[in-house]
Write a protein that binds this DNA or RNA. Structure first.
Length: 207
DNA sequence: ATGACGATTTACT
DNA sequence: GTAAATCGTCATA
């Protein structure tokens, strides 16, 4: 029996939420009712207007990143590199642009649908291994069909996408600098990425 | 109107 | 290891 994360769960700073999200389940319910889910095994915190690596650095506020300024529990889904979607969980307070990027899941439900979604974009007809399904921020969005339609939704009340809290031990957690951050000064090296030690679904592992 | 650039992934040498 | 793929978004004009 699991319970859905409520407003209180999200109403905190991004580092705390990042750590709290590890081990929880991200659930996606498709039109038609299919349920896809995975255990969160890798996250990154984006800490606000002073964070040079954040889309909201310096108070930058545009139509694209508007949902970062919404209430805690909002989904911030953005498009990048001309072909990929990535998903964040917004936290903090209204008008405070802080969020956590979901970087990898250990798939738990709907693996075959995920494989179908992921293979659609891949040309070679190879069957993807379970560890290739959701081991990256854009991969998991592809697998779970998360795109701009879900940008700005409320994760505490929307039936298409939400977080389920799971009890039990998370295991050993490690930290590292965030991935793919260009020259962001001191913010490039800060350890704002958290992942489960040794988990094969974490991104950037050998093939 | 135009140009530069991505919180990435995949394929290929 | 290196590079291509691919286009929405934003800043500049």
């Amino acid at each position: 029996m699991s319970t859905r994360a409520n407003r209180t769960f999200f109403n905190t700073d991004s580092k705390s939420l990042a750590r709290a999200l590890l081990g929880q389940h991200l659930v996606r319910v498709l039109d038609g009712g299919s349920r896809l889910a995975g255990r969160i095994v890798e996250v990154e915190a984006y800490t606000g207007v002073k964070d040079r690596a954040s889309h909201a650095f310096g108070g930058r506020r545009t139509p694209r990143n508007e949902s970062m300024y919404a209430q805690p529990g909002t989904a911030y889904v953005y498009f990048t590199y001309g072909m990929h979607w990535c998903m964040n969980v917004v936290c903090g307070q209204i008008d405070e642009p802080v969020a956590v990027l979901i970087r990898a899941l250990e798939p738990t439900e709907g693996l075959e649908l995920m494989r179908l979604h992921r293979s659609a974009g891949s040309r070679q007809g190879r069957v993807l291994r379970d560890t290739d399904l959701c081991s990256g921020p854009a991969r998991l969005c592809d697998a779970l069909e998360i795109d701009r339609r879900l940008n700005g939704i409320d994760l505490t009340s929307d039936d298409r996408l939400f977080i389920e809290r799971v009890r039990g031990k998370v295991g050993k957690v490690r930290t590292s600098p965030r991935i793919g951050i260009g020259n962001a000064g001191a913010w490039t090296a800060r350890k704002l990425r958290w992942y489960l030690a040794g988990n094969p679904h974490v991104s950037g592992r050998p093939r």
